[in-house]
């Protein structure tokens, strides 16, 4: 069974929810899927489908590089477990901490620097880079 068949349900769901720039490629035993989901809810439901199709996501045969649509100026919620999110001077944990955003605080997206680090601004005007994983577009 090809990987596209294995993840057919996921690919159909992505198409139906209007994931933009959806691209799918199978290479060396890994299915690469990329695109931009319209909302955090869509993004979460795709990941939940992945977990259903491949229990514990243990096969390592899908690389789902989906991000969530967020333009500069969009509001982002800090989705750490409970702690503050560090804001740094450069897009790396090497960067000096220039500020902190509280758990569930809403910050503003300045730019998507790369897939892992986004530049954000807090309500008090602190600006710097934070780890994108802990930021959810609202």
């Amino acid at each position: 069974m090809s990987l596209q068949d294995k993840y057919a349900q996921l690919l159909t769901a992505a198409k139906n929810m209007g994931v933009s720039n959806l691209a799918v490629a199978e290479q060396e035993g890994t299915l690469h899927v990329s695109g931009t989901a319209n909302s955090t809810a869509d993004y979460d439901s795709l990941w939940s489908l992945y977990g259903q199709i491949d229990p514990n996501m243990a096969s390592g045969d899908l690389m789902m590089n989906i991000d969530i649509k967020a333009d500069s100026g969009a509001s982002l919620k800090v989705t750490t477990d409970s702690t503050n999110l560090n804001i740094r001077s450069t897009p790396s944990t090497e960067g000096e901490i220039v500020g902190k955003a509280a758990h569930e605080e809403v910050v503003t997206l300045v730019e998507k620097t790369d897939d892992s680090w986004w530049k954000i601004r807090t309500a008090n005007g602190e600006e710097g880079y934070a780890y994108a994983q802990y930021l959810s577009p609202m």
Partner: peptide, 18 residues
């Protein structure tokens, strides 16, 4: 676990989580 997979995917890293 989901968070880990998302981190690996956004860094475009092939993973082994067995």
């Amino acid at each position: 676990r989901v968070k880990i997979m998302q981190i690996l995917a956004s860094a475009k890293v092939k993973s082994d989580v067995s």
